[in-house]
């Protein structure tokens, strides 16, 4: 279990992490979601005792990470994939890590096998592709067979097969009762992997709820209505107390399902050309939620098709 209370990190006058209160429970995959620069990596570095919080605390299994008698056996972490010396072999990298925490060395070959790097164990990691580096990072995280697993952007650079593998692995680790905390900036990926979601933007928690709650609350849906008499239809629907938005040549209606809307319009003798239920994707929901907190957003060109 990871518990952060009032966790804050300030760089100069910029608050990278701004008073986060989060509890990451065991037995489920918790997704840590936010746009780039939202404070995800900084938070993870503070969990691991690499960065010192400006204020607040973060504990793992009830104590600060640096106070663990053998931290790698308690918390396995994938940091940036390239936290490696390019001249060292994968096996040697795992070997020194194992030795530093009294992990039996045979475990090194076990995790190499687990991530599928046995055949390249003696190759220098400088020659590894991004995906292989990522696999090695995951091997490092699992080396100590830890009850808490923290993965920072684990699917970066992985091919579709690798992405599915990470997803399966994460779910399996959680099913074994471990605490699994995964950061990502991809909502679509988290939707498939996480049971629970913590969304942050500009260092603040924007949402902390189960995946299904998030979907129900944020993935809004509406009914697209096209008609040759849009003004009349809009009037009619508004009189029924529905929320109607006039968008270009269509009406977006919320509050009633397509069948009921169709019947209403039909009874009044108006024509309909289209009646469609539109669900906004989770990605859209995430974008909407974090819209105010994206640091480096690209300007949408004026007049660009939407």
């Amino acid at each position: 279990m990871i518990v952060a209370r009032g966790l804050t990190k300030t760089y100069g006058d910029k608050k990278a992490v701004d008073g986060i209160d989060v509890t990451v429970e065991p037995g489920r995959v918790t997704g840590f979601l936010g746009p780039n620069g939202a404070g995800k990596s900084t938070t993870m570095r503070m969990i691991l005792g690499l960065d010192r919080p400006t204020a607040g605390t973060v504990t793992v299994n009830g104590h600060r990470y640096p106070d663990s008698p053998a931290p790698l056996r308690e918390v396995g972490a994938l940091l940036e994939a390239r936290a490696l010396h390019p001249g060292r072999s994968a096996r040697d990298h795992l070997r020194w890590l194992a030795v530093s925490n009294r992990i039996p060395v045979p475990r090194v070959d076990e995790v190499l096998e687990l991530v599928g790097l046995t055949s390249v164990a003696h190759q220098r990691v400088g020659r590894f592709s991004l995906g292989m580096g990522q696999r090695l990072g995951i091997a490092v995280a699992l080396l100590g067979d830890p009850p808490v697993v923290v993965l920072d952007e684990p699917v970066n650079g992985l091919d579709p097969e690798g992405i599915r593998w990470v997803r399966t692995l994460a779910r399996q680790l959680a099913a074994e009762g471990r605490t699994v905390f995964i950061s990502s900036h991809l909502m679509s990926e988290m939707a498939l992997t996480a049971d629970h979601l913590v969304v942050i933007g500009r260092g603040r928690v924007l949402a902390d709820c189960s995946m299904s709650d998030f979907i129900a609350r944020h993935a809004a849906s509406f009914v697209r209505v096209r008609s040759p008499q849009p003004a009349d239809v809009a009037d009619l629907l508004r009189r029924q107390g529905l929320d109607v938005v006039d968008e270009d040549d269509e009406l977006r209606v919320q509050g009633l399902d397509p069948a009921a809307i169709g019947e209403l319009v039909g009874k009044s003798g108006l024509y309909l050309h289209e009646l469609t239920l539109v669900r906004s994707s989770l990605e859209d929901a995430f974008m909407t939620l974090t819209a105010g907190s994206v640091d480096y957003s690209a300007a949408t060109p004026v007049g660009a098709p939407r």
Binding site: P71, L72, E80, L84, P86
Partner: peptide
């Protein structure tokens, strides 16, 4: 070499003292 490669984070995660 640890700072150049980011290895220092792995080192300090393994041995926080």
């Amino acid at each position: 070499s640890e700072y150049g490669t980011g290895m220092i984070r792995a080192t300090l995660a393994a041995t926080p003292r």
